[in-house]
């Protein structure tokens, strides 16, 4: 009974430590897309019959994905300037899968020294070639279906390109940051950055094709829920 109690207390402590400070805000918003969505190029997967079989109807390029509600998917949104304090790297790994000869997620954020678990779900050879400028480059061959490897980035960098040389159409981008204040737009074009303490910030959005935009944000405090709107022109 005593051990249970102790455990309970320990858990409570851990949770409270992980919980947002009482006066932290949530930054949410959408990234709109103006103009007509470019026609996605068909990807020739004939380099690898395995990939071709996984996409019997053919696959299209995933560099620009405009959602049905007129928003842009896979935009990396992060606090570029203004964050103070240190944020220890989470021990939970970011999952990065090679599935159907494509990367999932295509764009993601990760903290410095946070483990990145790379998975190969395909029954073919993939190589994961990360090309950071600030951290050590790695290039892993993953010939076995279901195999997993772990890697980390040791310095912040927006963005680190990751590519597969066996399948030249495969590319992904990782935003490596020293803090956890980032998000990626989803199928609704929405993003959310939680637990941001009060302060003056510069928020940047980054898109593989359309580049970066910035906005200044001031969080006054006390559970504020700030809405931000970005917009890219096609």
């Amino acid at each position: 009974m005593k051990t249970m109690l102790a455990l309970g207390v320990a858990f409570a402590l851990i949770f409270t430590a992980g919980l947002p400070a009482a006066d932290a805000a949530t930054l949410a918003g959408k990234v709109a897309f103006e103009g007509t969505a470019p026609v996605a190029e068909k990807m020739a997967m004939d380099a690898d019959p395995t990939c071709q079989m996984l996409h019997p109807d053919g696959a299209v390029a995933d560099d620009v994905i405009v959602n049905s509600n007129g928003t842009l998917k896979n935009v990396f949104v992060y606090v570029k300037e203004g964050v103070t304090g240190t944020f220890p790297a989470p021990t939970d790994a970011v999952q990065f899968d090679q599935h159907g000869c494509q990367y999932t997620p295509k764009v993601f954020g990760i903290q410095v020294n946070q483990p990145l678990e790379i998975i190969n779900s395909d029954n073919t050879l993939h190589n994961v070639h990360a090309l950071p400028q600030n951290s050590k480059e790695f290039n892993l061959g993953m010939p076995i279906q279901g195999m997993k490897l772990k890697k980390t980035f040791t310095s912040p960098e927006v963005m680190v390109k990751i590519k597969c040389e066996v399948h030249p159409w495969m590319s992904a981008y990782a935003g490596v940051l020293e803090h956890p204040f980032y998000g990626v737009t989803n199928e609704e074009g929405a993003f959310e950055i939680k637990n941001l303490p009060p302060g003056n910030y510069v928020v940047e959005t980054w898109h593989e094709k359309y580049g970066a935009q910035t906005q200044n944000v001031t969080i006054a405090g006390a559970d504020e829920a700030k809405e931000l709107a970005f917009s890219y022109k096609g």
């Binding site: 190589n127 070639h129 290039n139």
Partner: peptide
């Protein structure tokens, strides 16, 4: 190099 390592 584009050559990956198979023995990380």
């Amino acid at each position: 190099t584009m050559m990956p390592t198979f023995f990380p």
